[in-house]
Write a protein that binds this DNA or RNA. Sequence first.
DNA 1: GACGCGTGGTG
DNA 2: TCACCAAGCGT
Length: 302
Amino acid sequence: MSSAPSAVPLPGPSDEPVGEVVVDWYAGAARDLPWRESGTDPWAVLVSEVMLQQTPVARVEPVWREWLARWPTPAAMAAASPAEVIRAWGKLGYPRRALRLREAAVAITARHAGVVPAEVDELEALPGIGTYTARAVSCFGHGRRQAVVDTNVRRVVARLVHGRAEAAPARAADLLDITALAPVDDERAVRFSVAVMELGALVCVAGTPRCAACPVRDRCAWRLAGYPAHDGPPKRVQRFAGTDRQVRGRLLDVLRAAHEPVDPDALVPAWEDAVQRSRCLDSLLVDGLVVQTEDGRFALPS
DNA sequence: GACGCGTGGTG
DNA sequence: TCACCAAGCGT
């Protein structure tokens, strides 16, 4: 250890732990999202988190407001029919989420007396609630200190800590990586969990990162290494046109609009190819997104 | 662990 | 224009 004055770390922003810097940045840079308002109850947070799984914020916001106004508690949603929630889900995409969210509401009502649990393992036991969402609800909904790792967080850690351009696939060590950066204070740790996600969503983005706006750029391992390119295999982009996903979407579109069961013929315009149309209809039946009436017509499950 | 699952905005 | 992208989950 040197005794020279220059060896003594100077107090100042650049000496703050990374986690504290990110939390301070969040205070001035965070988006004003309704589910982040203080007093948002855990159920409302849970609904927002499920809707935000793979769906952008801008499309979630209006639907989230409608849902919370209509079904302000798990018990309220548990009393709704699948058809109602599928219609209310609208075009958020991946409508199985709507079904699972309703099933989660049923389970919360039955097993937890209508109270959204705060424990991660109890949350993970609910339909449609995985590693990310369980921790997000515990942290953002109940104010528990939790490591919360989504695709944004993995990307931030990959760059900031590991000096890599892109995140590796999710792994258990992700939780340890981010835990090591979290502030000591519990309230700030909760803030930190949402702040890292926000940093990844607004600054450390997947496309062209906005490093000039980054509060921790002076200690980013990726930047300090000269922005080395991603060396792993390129990730495959999912096609959409012509896939079963598109066909399922078209079929469900017809059934959402219809308020009584429709004849099979009414589904032909949705997709001309009979083989693929039939296959997709079957998969929708298997998923419980569609039911067939005794007279052979199709409808949303009431 | 790779794959399937919707939709619409964007550079 | 069109590939890419957006707070994952279940199998």
